[in-house]
C-alpha cells in the first residue's frame, strides 16, 4: 500500500516537473556568452569611433574648405562616440551580470 502511494506521488511529481519544463522560462536578455561577446566589442568600438570621426571631418573639410578644423572637431567627436559606445556596452554587461546575480539569489530562495 505504501509503495502504491509513493509511486503515485512520484508520478504526480514527475508530471509536474515535465509540465514545468514545457513552459520556456523567462530567459535573461543577456547571458554569459553574450556578456563575453559584448566585451569583445570594446576595442573595435573605440577605434571605429575615431575612424568615422576622421572620415566625416575629412570630407566635410574638403566640401566646406575649412581644413583642418572640422577634421579635428570630428576626430574628437568620434572619440567621444567611441567612449559612449564602450560605456554602453559595459552597461549592458553590467546589467546582464546583475540580472544573473538576481536570478541566482531568487533561485536559492525559491
Amino acid at each position: 500500500m505504501s509503495m502504491e502511494k509513493s509511486s503515485l506521488e512520484d508520478l504526480s511529481a514527475r508530471v509536474k516537473k515535465a509540465r514545468k519544463n514545457m513552459v520556456p522560462e523567462d530567459r535573461p536578455a543577456l547571458n554569459d556568452t553574450q556578456a563575453y561577446g559584448m566585451a569583445m566589442r570594446l576595442v573595435a568600438e573605440l577605434l571605429s569611433g575615431l575612424f568615422v570621426g576622421f572620415v566625416i571631418g575629412w570630407f566635410l573639410d574638403k566640401w566646406l574648405g575649412t581644413k583642418p578644423w572640422l577634421l579635428i572637431t570630428f576626430i574628437f567627436l568620434g572619440l567621444c562616440a567611441g567612449i559612449f559606445n564602450v560605456m554602453r556596452a559595459a552597461k549592458q554587461i553590467e546589467a546582464a551580470a546583475a540580472r544573473k546575480r538576481r536570478q541566482k539569489t531568487e533561485g536559492n530562495e525559491g
Binding site: 503515485l8 508520478l11 504526480s12 508530471v15 515535465a18 514545457m22
Partner: peptide, 19 residues
C-alpha cells in the same frame, strides 16, 4: 511532448480517482 504530457496528466487523474 504536450500531448504526451496531457495524456500522462489525464492518466494520473484517473489513477488518483481509482485510488
Amino acid at each position: 511532448i504536450a500531448s504526451d504530457l496531457e495524456e500522462a496528466e489525464r492518466m494520473q487523474t484517473t489513477a488518483e480517482q481509482v485510488r
